[in-house]
Write a protein that binds this DNA or RNA. Structure first.
Length: 474
RNA sequence: GGCCCUAUCGUCUAGUGGUUCAGGACACCGCCCUCUCACGGCGGCGGCAGGGGUUCGAAUCCCCUUAGGGCUACCA
């Protein structure tokens, strides 16, 4: 009988803040590994810190993961609901003499620690209560795990190989607080083991915790899983990413008009590579992802590269889908905009927008009734000299049988030639007339979506201005 | 302080002892394309942190230094 080992990974955030880029990448790697192996990926909320855990953060984390498209198997698991299990494990450790009650107060511990620091010693618990006779459960106490006094704790990291730390470096860690609540190191071990997690993929800030946890695995009679520690994500100043670096929460990127596909691509390429390939779809990532290709060194997050990636994904995305994602951004500027409007305008903007915000801005011309001319644009292009050509353009649009871009292109060129002008000499004034700006989508495309009536209205308005200049001059 | 982790262009990375005076991408700078802005195409700038070993041969292996990061909580 062959035993098939199914891969099972987990993302285990503590709901003490928003999901940030580092956490999102950890989640992504766990998700990718599970999906690439046809395994399971579960979401576990580590809410054992009652003080700092907040339900709204749980909501935000879930919303972020959904936005990225990282779906988990089953229901989210909350550690706060599994206290009985943890208490049972602690009682077992106690009864097996693998843990003990410690009656030292926090104050005593704190002063001892600072004294040790002052004396230049290792600030460790002095194990006063480790071998105390007669353990009273009625007195206030914490429960500490009996870390072996000799030997070493080691584990295999997928990327780094064997990591070993002498047990003399390790403290007797607290596994249950005075108030009876349980602590992180105990709980992760129990859960990872009980849930059957085969591969723990987490931030390398946990690498120093792992040896302690390995001792716990042994003490509880569990087999440790495979560990993979992923590096941190840094800001431009090479410091750990924080508010100072701009967007901290993943949802801020959503609100700035980035595509989930682009964020996933970005996060994957930050600390992982597949030859020279830069652009990946989610499916390709699942297909090509391997743990061994993860980089161990910390990576600096470069927003300019995200911009580029976002533009690339915008360019290749299906128009309808893109319109759906862009619509909220358009409606923020123009509340009456519809899905149809967005779909009509997408082709004009998808080649020239880096974000959905830029895309929505680029659509302004379509929704604006009264064109407000930029001063520089007006002065340069709405001139007396430009009046005649503009009038000819109006005639052209009036008489043009079909306002598709090919016809317009052909007719505009013909007109330019007849007038002895370059195409740009008529295209620029028309652009200003239609948008008030010198930068916009192509004029033929704009005329096409605006339609004959509206295009003529705008050209008429511009020509009136040009005429008034003419009369002032005279 | 102690312990642990990391180190290729400004940034993300390819590279796992020899077809590499180190390849790609972003950014930047030229040129081309062009109705503007973009897109795109072509080209350029730019790197193995430093020092010792090992080896016929080192970006690749080992050691030291330096730099950055983490842990050292009744946080996770």
């Amino acid at each position: 009988m062959t035993q098939v080992v199914i891969v099972k990974t987990r993302f285990a955030p503590s709901p003490t803040g928003s999901l940030h880029l580092g956490g999102a990448r950890t989640a992504l790697f766990n998700w990718l590994f599970a999906r690439s192996k046809n395994g399971e990926f579960v979401l576990r909320i580590e809410d054992t810190d009652k003080e700092r855990s907040k339900p709204e953060y749980v909501e935000e984390i879930i919303e972020s993961l959904k936005w990225l498209g990282l779906d988990w198997d089953g229901e989210p698991y909350f550690q706060s609901q599994k206290t009985a299990l943890y208490q049972e494990k602690i009682e077992t450790l106690l009864s097996e003499d693998k843990a003990y009650r410690c009656y030292c107060t926090k104050e005593v511990l704190d002063t001892k620690r600072s004294e040790m620091m002052k004396a230049g010693e290792k600030p460790m618990y002095d194990r006063t209560c480790r071998d105390l006779e007669g353990q009273e459960s009625s007195r206030p106490h914490v429960v500490r795990f009996k870390t072996p006094l000799t030997g070493a704790a080691s584990f295999v990291d997928t990327l780094r190989g064997v990591v070993e730390v002498g047990n003399d470096e390790l403290d007797d860690l607290i596994i249950r607080r005075t108030d009876g609540s349980v602590t992180y190191n105990l709980v992760v071990v129990v859960d990872d083991a009980e849930m059957g997690i085969t591969s723990v993929i987490r931030g390398d800030d946990h690498i120093a915790n792992t040896p302690k946890q390995v001792n716990l695995y042994k003490g509880l009679g569990y087999e440790p899983p495979e560990f993979t520690h992923v590096s941190m994500i840094l800001g431009k100043d090479k410091k750990r990413l924080s508010k100072r670096h701009g967007a901290e929460s993943l949802l801020e990127y959503r609100d700035e008009g980035y595509l989930p596909a682009a964020l996933v691509n970005m996060l994957a390429r930050l600390g992982w590579g597949y030859g020279d390939q830069e652009l990946f779809t989610r499916e390709e990532l699942v297909e090509k992802f391997t743990l061994s290709k993860i980089t161990m060194s910390p990576a600096v997050f470069d927003k300019e590269k995200l911009d580029w990636l976002n533009a690339q994904h915008i360019k290749t995305m299906d128009n309808n889908e893109l319109a759906r994602l862009a619509l909220p951004f358009v409606q923020k500027r123009h509340p009456h905009a519809t899905q149809e409007d967005a779909e009509k305008l997408i082709p004009l903007l998808k080649e020239r927008s880096r974000t959905l915000v830029e895309m929505a801005e680029g659509m302004d011309f379509y929704f604006t009734r009264e064109i407000r001319y930029e001063q520089k644009a007006e002065k340069k292009f709405l001139t007396e000299k430009g009046l005649k050509p503009l009038e000819r353009v109006m005639e052209l649009i009036e008489n043009c049988s079909d306002l598709d871009t090919e016809t317009l292109d052909r007719e505009f060129r013909k007109l330019a030639e007849n007038l002895g002008l370059k195409l740009k000499e008529i295209a620029q004034p028309v652009r200003v007339a239609l948008t008030g700006k010198t930068v916009s989508p192509g004029v033929f495309e704009m005329i096409n979506v605006l339609g004959r009536r509206e295009s003529l209205n705008r050209l008429k308005a511009a020509s009136d201005i040009m005429r008034s200049i003419e009369s002032t001059v005279k």
